[in-house]
Design a protein around this nucleic acid. Structure first.
Lengths: 225, 225
DNA sequence: GTAATTTTATTCTGGTCAGTACAATATTTG
DNA sequence: CAAATATTGTACTGACCAGAATAAAATTAC
């Protein structure tokens, strides 16, 4: 049940405005909401679910976030920002092969929880599932995905510059394939594929991508290497 | 609104049981339901939506299918069977490269409608989105995905036998990467990526996969070709 | 110490949800 | 032609939904 005792520890040290102090940290609450939305998706997550996960009552939720959908948008962005930060760190590995390996391992750590609970990716699965009927969610999910494509494309450019990939490779095109594997890992994780099999699939993806000789990108003809 | 006039044409020619004849074809109704579920996902699709899409009233829906979830299960399987049939046909192309090309084109024809409406894949997106809270749906989605993996693995085996892929390639492992691209195409289509970009991505995937020299599969060490 | 302000708890709202009751309809059987 | 049976249409049910009204609480301002 809901425990909403005062948490002074969570309150900012900035000079307090008048009125009853807020008893929860909005950022912490958003993370809790994000977990609830990740499990059930937007439509199937109720206000009762959110209230319980966030430890606040409805008027507090509405006061801080506006509406269920506004909260969802915020939670989705928080999730995306956190994953982007993790992915950026993973891609800093010295070699392209190790960077991809770390990227997929980082993703799987998020997609498959420690206790074996499978959740997949909030962007590629639950947000995209809502995309047909929710233009705003679709636009946001697409922007987030484009951002990840760009992040990986930058690493691909570095691999090309360092001679680890052919100069004929188009960074953005190659990046889409790299990120494509993230999508599939997310789908399979949420469908219940074991971590072991997912790890094997990630290893195979790295082998395929990091050691590829294929020139990739629009305009490149099917020339055999 | 609902038009449920008698359709004698749709009624089986088998000897009719007594009682009022059913005024709709359950198989046709399931397909209509499948379209509705594909758009909105299980939770967000209401009985009103289904009623309207199927052209029948609730008691008819319940009489024929049992419950909303039973109908969903049936619609999901009908979708999966239809896609498997299309995929099997695509994979019959003479060369592995052409088989993959046809596979991805077939998928994109389904994931992006003629009128540009984007829907993605009912299994990999909308069913998987429900998977965490619905064990039955998760198990069904996983079984369907495994089936597609197996279908493609058979084609990979043929490519190996015909010298188009290295003998070191493990069919199932390679198949997962091939199908992985299907998952990503579905996710991106539903997120609004243009058909043009999706086609380019498909072409790149074929180039990467069909011309890969990388030995893939568990146990294969990172030996450079 | 009271007023002003902001937040929170409890209760409630109108609408929607999945599903069902019941009467009417449309057939076959006897 | 009436009975039996299966299906359909209309209206309805209890539960649940997102969201809001109201009073109380907890602060700061004066």
């Amino acid at each position: 049940m809901t425990h909403s005792g005062k948490n002074k520890e969570q309150i900012s040290t900035k000079i307090r405005a008048r009125g009853r102090p807020r008893a929860f940290d909005p950022a912490v609450a958003v993370d809790a909401a994000q977990s609830a939305f990740l499990r059930k998706g937007y439509a199937a997550t109720t206000l009762d679910d959110l209230s319980e996960a966030m430890g606040i009552n409805r008027p507090s939720l509405y006061g801080a976030f506006g509406s269920k959908e506004d909260l969802y948008v915020r939670a989705l962005q928080a999730y995306a920002d956190r994953m982007a930060t993790l992915f950026a760190a993973a891609l800093r590995e010295a070699t392209f092969s190790k960077a991809l390996k770390k990227l997929y391992a980082t993703a799987l750590d998020a997609y498959v929880a420690d206790d074996g609970a499978v959740v997949g990716c909030m962007v590629a699965i639950t947000a995209v599932a809502e995309a047909v009927e929710e233009d705003g969610i679709r636009a946001q999910a697409k922007a987030i995905m484009d951002n990840i494509d760009q992040l990986v494309a930058q690493r691909v450019s570095r691999a090309i510059a360092e001679g680890e990939l052919s100069g004929e490779v188009k960074p953005r095109a190659f990046s889409r394939l790299v990120v494509g594997m993230l999508h599939s890992l997310a789908v399979r994780a949420r469908a219940g594929t074991s971590r072991k099999v997912l790890d094997e699939m990630a290893d195979d993806a790295v082998r395929l991508l990091a050691h590829s000789k294929a020139p990739l990108g629009p305009g490149v003809r099917n020339a055999r290497p």
